[in-house]
């Protein structure tokens, strides 16, 4: 383990048997691990199981941890467990789409109707991606992990991460173009890019919009 890992002290303490140090690591990453598991599995109870199992496995395998980052390592364990669950679901559950129950709404209800529509459209588009592309988008775009860490989590080369990410974004854009709830997002960015006032800094405008949306 490299000394650059911000968790190295806690990991060392946990290895020495300090349960509280490991609990601190869990508190640090439980939200991230649960979010990735939930969005991969689309099932709250399965995501809970995978999250808990990932941390328990991480604890009992701490001696074997040789990676560069605890975050990437625990995410890798959770990702593998989630993939196992997906394979198991594919084998045993054949619920037709129209009969499948709606997933519970896990998000804060504070957003406006418009943004709820956009969020729902994004979630549906994400769920429509194949698992390998979904995992890359979740880690890189939704959670903001650097590409090299995504490569470490998924155990694939950096070039594969980039190609999967590019394919996933292309597919997401196509899916969102077909969804009226998200069309506004793409149309707005297209208008801004075509030379309307303020188009020079789309990122800033989008971020401001997001900030106000979260403050609301």
């Amino acid at each position: 383990m490299e000394s650059g890992d911000p968790d190295s002290t806690l990991v060392a303490a946990a290895r020495a048997g300090d349960h509280e140090a490991f609990a601190e690591l869990v508190r640090r990453y439980q939200r991230l691990v649960y979010a990735v598991s939930y969005r991969l599995l689309r099932d709250q109870s399965l995501a809970e199981d995978v999250t808990q199992d990932a941390f328990v496995r991480a604890y009992f395998s701490l001696d074997r941890f040789r990676g560069t980052s605890f975050r990437a390592w625990v995410l890798r364990i959770a990702h593998n467990a989630a993939l196992d669950q997906l394979r198991s679901l594919a084998r045993h559950r054949h619920v037709p789409l129209e009969e499948a129950p709606e997933p519970p709404e896990p998000f804060s209800p504070a957003e406006s109707v418009e943004h709820q529509g956009l969020i729902a459209a994004l979630e549906v588009a994400l769920a429509a991606l194949p698992p390998d592309q979904r995992a890359v988008v979740l880690l890189a775009d939704v959670e903001g992990l650097p590409h090299n860490e995504v490569a470490e989590v998924l155990a694939i080369p950096l070039g594969t991460v980039k190609s999967r990410l590019a394919r996933a974004r292309t597919r997401l854009r196509a899916l969102l173009e077909a969804d009226p709830r998200a069309r506004e997002l793409l149309e707005l960015s297209g208008r801004l890019a075509s030379g309307e006032p303020g188009s020079s800094d789309l990122a800033t405008s989008t971020q401001e919009e997001e900030r106000s949306f979260h403050d609301a």
Partner: peptide
């Protein structure tokens, strides 16, 4: 710009 907007919307989920 559409891809930038998409990526930022994902980040803000």
């Amino acid at each position: 710009q559409q891809y930038v907007a998409l990526q930022q919307a994902l980040r803000a989920l």
